[in-house]
Design a protein around this nucleic acid. Structure first.
Length: 268
DNA sequence: TTGTGTTTTATTGCCTCC
DNA sequence: GGAGGCAATAAAACACAA
């Protein structure tokens, strides 16, 4: 096993505070005055000790050692045995110390990396949140527009109620048939410059008739696109013209729930 | 000077690989 | 079963405000 007994630990400490030359070298490496004083103090302490009784206090690696280790870590953050021995020899450290330094360095690197990842994720989350907020605002505007148009439609229906329902139905039917034929013509071919109503942004729809056309057209396109079913003219009687029943709306303007397709493809 | 928070060095225990 | 890696932790060293 890799476990070390106390003599191993002592050996490690001995290697750090080994020679007078080394300590002198430390003293010349530009430490702060306080640190310098501490080193001098340690020097005195060490000399007061006998050779057989070396201080086991933890010592930090000197600047030169740390720089060399950092440089090696940049090259490769894992340490092969040969490199460990070579580094230890060059820096006057125990191989065990070099290994520990790399281990701790990897741990620090990992922590930093986690912080960086967190920062990146946080930034993208904030961007996404902003996008969502913008979409929510647009959605509210659209919903409000639909509400207004629906109210307008209702008032128009009321105004027209003096006409004969029967006559209106006949007119409506012929209108629908005409529009149906034109829709079939529009969507059955490769005519892509068709249907200003379909390509039109619903938020720009300003009249109730435009809105009706938009929805009917949407409906017919889906029917035609779905397994080439025979087109069934969707003749809307005034009493059937509830545009936004719970089912038909399909949560189209719901912020909390994505639009579902079950109402367009009930068999699926 | 001292209390406190942070960083660095080292240990321990567990796990995986060969 | 030994070697090495990692997470958790201890403890010394260090930084800094009050």
């Amino acid at each position: 096993m890799k476990r070390f007994n106390s003599s191993d630990s002592s050996a490690a400490f001995i290697s750090i505070s080994s020679s007078k030359e080394e300590r002198t070298q430390k003293a010349n490496q530009g430490y702060s005055r306080d640190f310098q004083a501490m080193l001098d103090n340690l020097e005195e302490e060490d000399y007061s000790e006998t050779a057989s009784h070396v201080s086991e206090k933890k010592r930090r690696l000197n600047l030169h050692q740390v720089k060399a280790l950092e440089k090696n870590f940049e090259v490769e953050n894992k340490l092969e045995p040969e490199r460990k021995l070579k580094l230890a020899g060059e820096l006057g450290l125990q191989p065990r110390q070099v290994a520990i330094w790399f281990q701790n360095r990897r741990a620090r690197w990992k922590t930093k990396q986690l912080e960086r990842d967190y920062g990146t994720l946080k930034a993208s989350y904030e961007a996404l949140k902003l996008d969502y907020s913008n979409l929510e605002q647009k959605n509210e505007v659209l919903a409000q527009k639909v509400k207004e148009l629906k109210a307008k439609l209702m008032s128009e229906e009321k105004a027209d109620s003096s006409h004969s329902v029967k006559e209106e139905y006949r007119v409506s039917e012929s209108d629908n048939n005409a529009s149906v034929h034109s829709k079939i013509h529009d969507f059955s071919g490769n005519n892509n410059n068709n249907s200003s109503a379909m390509t039109k942004d619903p938020s720009n729809i300003s009249s109730s008739h435009e809105l009706m056309n938009w929805f009917q057209l949407s409906d017919s396109r889906v029917i035609l696109g779905s397994r080439y079913q025979v087109y069934q003219p969707h003749l809307m009687k005034p009493e059937d013209q509830s545009l936004f029943s719970a089912e038909e709306s399909c949560n189209f303007f719901s912020v909390d729930q994505a639009p579902t397709l079950h109402c367009y493809f009930p068999e699926q």
